[in-house]
């Protein structure tokens, strides 16, 4: 009778995929992702792309908030840095989209690190406010520096091209997004098998203890900001190339809250959680809209209020998850797995 998963060698304990079932699940997910675009309609592909971009952003934020314990409300601002860097370089200077994306990632990492400097002195609430200030300052610069960003007007970005093929359909872009999601996932999972990742986790759990153990807080906190912003910048740059248009409205505080909601609902400190949260939060509005349509005939009032209440739902969902399942969807997923592994003899 198996009562749990116990590893008897270090190799097994350190392995990326620890169990047989995990391997099977990963294969199923990959096969699904490969087959999906051929079966789905355009609308589903659009959603899939949005989910993919959200997953990258959520993993980025989760590295900072979930793994390193440094709260950030600057997500929207950092995404704006990524999107505008990529957009400006491609639209104004004719840089190929992949090159501008790479530059955007590094630029965002740099800016994120700069705004991460206060984290050396500030914790928790104060850091949240300082990163919120970063968000406000970045957005203010974006809307007022018209010469560079186009101010409040939208910045139009040409279609990306790869090997001479225009990536202007959802079907083509799907491969770019999800290819990058794959790379980011492998990188993120591996990050927490290295000493960098373990240092991040040590800082989250007890920063003073970590510092006593020889973790240089200065270095690793900034590194966490850099790595996290790098991925967030990637998500921003992808948004720019995917939408062909960059406007400041896409990067407001709401976005910061939305991403925070994603990782809380998905599960802090978990890559799987980032997937679940990003998917859930991107599809929630769609579900709500469909729900509204379904009940339109019987309850016309709900249909008229629903579009506005959608965003309010985000707030409510955050609170409810914090109260009833603080570890997020990831925990629910674990419970389901445990239930079936131990079935029929739970306990």
């Amino acid at each position: 009778m198996i009562s749990g998963i116990f590893h008897t060698t270090y190799e097994k304990d350190m392995a990326l995929r620890r169990t047989h079932a995990q391997k099977i699940r990963i294969v199923i997910v990959i096969v699904f992702l490969l087959v999906f675009p051929f079966l789905a309609n355009r609308y589903a592909l659009t959603l899939a792309n949005q989910v993919g971009i959200a997953v990258i952003g959520a993993i980025g934020l989760n590295i900072l908030v979930g793994y390193t314990g440094q709260i950030s409300l600057g997500q929207g601002g950092f995404m704006a840095v990524g999107a505008y860097t990529a957009g400006i370089l491609t639209a104004r200077f004719g840089m190929p989209w992949w090159a501008s994306t790479i530059v955007a990632c590094f630029t965002t990492a740099l800016i994120g690190t700069i705004f991460g400097i206060p984290s050396l002195r500030l914790k928790g609430l104060y850091l949240a406010i300082a990163t919120l200030a970063a968000q406000v300052i970045i957005l203010w610069v974006v809307t007022h520096w018209s010469a560079l960003t186009g101010g409040v007007d939208a910045l139009v970005v040409p279609d990306p091209k790869l090997f001479g093929i225009k990536i202007n359909t959802d079907f083509n872009f799907y491969w770019v997004t999800w290819g990058l999601v794959g790379i980011v996932t492998i990188a993120a999972v591996n990050l927490f098998r290295t000493h960098f990742g373990r240092a991040f986790i040590a800082i989250r759990d007890q920063d003073i203890a970590a510092s006593v153990m020889g973790v240089d807080l200065f270095k690793y906190k900034l590194l966490a900001f850099a790595v996290s912003s790098f991925l967030v910048g990637l998500a921003g740059a992808l948004t720019a190339h995917y939408r062909n248009i960059v406007t400041w409205e896409r990067f407001t505080v709401d976005v910061s809250v939305l991403y925070l909601a994603m990782i809380i609902i998905g599960g802090l400190g978990s890559v799987t959680g980032s997937y679940l949260g990003a998917t859930f939060m991107t599809l929630l509005p769609v579900l709500l809209t469909n729900l509204g349509r379904a009940v339109k005939t019987s309850f016309p009032l709900i249909d008229s209020i629903l579009p506005f209440v959608q965003q309010a739902m985000f707030g409510l969902v955050i609170i409810l998850f914090l109260i009833f399942e603080p570890e997020g969807l990831n925990k629910i997923w674990k419970n389901i797995k445990d239930y079936f592994r131990l079935w029929p003899f739970s306990y």
Partner: peptide, 14 residues
Amino acid sequence: LISAIGASFFLEYA
């Protein structure tokens, strides 16, 4: 703090 952000969001959009 996060719950407060959620509450703020909820009030605004409600």
